[in-house]
Design a protein around this nucleic acid. Structure first.
Length: 528
DNA sequence: AAAAAAT
């Protein structure tokens, strides 16, 4: 079939990959010298115009592995009106925006027109950019097709097509859309295809739409990232029980906790938990797909900039979002699909840092936990800390709304949110440094990365595949309820119908890293 | 049991 080439990334710098001087200078300005494995493996082939099948999660430097060669290749030629030269498909709006940031950052020496076509924002600006001729078009599938149906977009000039996070597109039911879009683009194009996993449907897709692809795989050496401490935490199953467990956990971890993402399974839960945490004076924000786009971007930017310590989120934030240096992940709910667990906890422990994840588990979660443990090939330890003592021993420093004297522990379902606020909000000590001594062997740009073929874990990978398959049931789109999460600081539910003008937040200067962001447990296998 | 994405 194909020969295996083992890449030794430590021998490479970006200047060895064949990128243009303009691109190299932008990369240097961003402070990077050494490519990650996926970059070292993919970029040379992408520059030669070959199709790429990249098997990698975000956080591996995947985005730059297609952005940089695309920029180099775009230096020849010019865009024509309504005929974009390249197209990048992303599953979520945030990811699309993140890719745009990468193009802006690394394309600063180019004069390229970049158009971002995502939902939730007005068509006008997007139309103008298309009309002007886009060198780079970044889109979510729905809005892209919408533009095309309105006749504002011709896809037969596309030279390079990128399909990112293909397995997630599958989960979200986008595959028919992706197939439609692929069929609109001439087969002479170059296709760069990325997926974290390769379920059968995705393999089928690559067979249909890729031509003799170079396969570049960055796989985890072992099931669990050793730099992430994972714990299960027992809790009662009622919402108020879980909220209490969570608060106690947050307080118990306070000294080590820099910032945290708290995942819920449902949007309503995100909203409820978010409001509850605000009542308890936690410095929290919320993020889910029914919030308007402006609020989504704002929350994310604030969290990245350290203006928010806690982000309560749905799985919209589970994958791909590039938020460096999240110290903790809390699963308020056990994810129903085991693969989501891996993505969620992967938001911490990035760039070889240490990270902690806690998953609140109730009796009814057992079978989901079993599935997760099967997938990661490990038992997750139970948290041994006694959370009940945390509350009692702290004289109530943070636990603002205290129960009234002699009040029954639990009266009704409205629970904590109904208690009075118990005084003014206190400034909380923020950003307690998490312990340096706990840091595992880290991989930075300046450190060598061991390159080797992982053969030991075939059984584990098969188990993972099976688990993923079993989780991948047919999903239909759910109805969108009208609920919007309020903005931070406003604890009232917002149900007004006259939504504010939506537009993208432009001043988002979040780190768009790659070299900095390679977990220590990654290895590369490049098959040519 | 959900979320995401086009209006």
């Amino acid at each position: 079939m194909s020969s295996d080439t083992t890449i030794a990334p430590e021998a490479l710098t970006f200047s060895d990959l064949g990128l243009s001087p303009k691109v190299l200078s932008a990369v240097t300005d961003a402070g990077y010298t050494q490519p990650t494995p996926i970059q070292a493996g993919a970029i040379p082939h992408a520059l030669l115009g070959k199709d790429i099948l990249g098997i990698a999660q975000t956080g591996t430097g995947k985005t730059a592995s297609f952005v940089l060669p695309m920029l180099t290749r775009l230096e020849k030629g010019r865009a024509r009106a309504r005929m974009p030269r390249t197209l990048i498909l992303e599953p979520t709006r945030e990811l699309a925006a993140q890719v745009e940031e990468n193009f802006i950052r690394y394309g600063k020496n180019h004069k390229l027109n970049i158009a971002l076509l995502i939902g939730g924002v007005s068509f006008d600006e997007q139309d103008k950019k298309l009309e002007r001729g886009a060198d780079v078009l970044i889109a979510t599938p729905g809005r892209l097709l919408d533009h095309r149906e309105r006749g504002k977009l011709l896809l037969n000039g596309v030279e390079i097509l990128v399909i990112d996070e293909a397995d997630r597109m599958l989960d979200m039911g986008f595959i028919p859309d992706i197939e439609r879009i692929c069929e609109m683009i001439p087969f002479t194009r170059q296709t760069l295809f990325f997926s974290a996993t390769m379920p059968p449907e995705i393999t089928k897709l690559t067979e249909k739409f890729l031509h003799a692809p170079v396969r570049v795989e960055v796989s985890k050496a072992a099931s669990a990232a050793t730099n992430i401490i994972q714990r299960l935490v027992k809790s009662g199953s009622k919402p108020w029980d879980k909220r209490e467990t969570l608060r106690n956990l947050m307080k118990a971890e306070d000294a080590e906790l820099k910032n945290a993402i708290i995942f819920c399974n449902r949007k309503v839960e995100v909203s409820e938990l978010f409001r509850s945490l605000l009542k308890y004076d936690f410095d929290a924000g919320a993020l889910h797909g029914d919030m308007d786009q402006r609020a989504r971007m704002q929350m994310l930017a604030n969290f990245r900039d350290g203006k928010l310590r806690y982000l309560v989120a749905s799985d919209v934030a589970a994958r791909g979002l590039d938020i460096p240096d999240v110290s903790h992940v809390f699963n308020y709910d056990v994810p129903i699909h085991a693969e989501d667990y891996v993505h969620r906890i992967g938001r911490t422990g990035r760039a070889g840092r240490s990270g902690k994840s806690f998953t609140i588990a109730t009796k009814s979660d057992t079978k989901y936990i079993d599935a997760i443990e099967r997938l990661i090939g490990n038992k997750i330890e139970w948290h041994d800390g006694d959370l009940s003592t945390v509350v009692a021993s702290e004289g109530g420093e943070d636990d603002a709304p205290r129960r009234g004297k002699g009040a029954p522990r639990r009266a009704g379902r409205k629970d904590d949110d109904r208690k009075d606020r118990g005084g003014e909000r206190k400034p909380r000590e923020r950003h307690a440094k998490h312990s340096e001594e706990a840091a595992p062997a880290t991989v930075r740009e300046d450190q060598p990365v061991v390159a080797e073929v992982e053969v030991a874990d075939i059984g584990e990978r098969r188990a993972r595949k099976d688990a993923i398959r079993s989780e991948n049931t047919e999903r239909k789109s759910s109805d969108r309820n009208e609920q919007r999460a309020p903005e931070r600081g406003d604890t009232r539910p917002q149900r007004d119908s006259n939504r504010p003008a939506r537009h993208r937040q432009e001043d988002n200067d979040a780190t768009v890293g790659f070299g900095d962001d390679m977990p220590a447990f990654m290895r590369i296998v490049a098959k040519v």
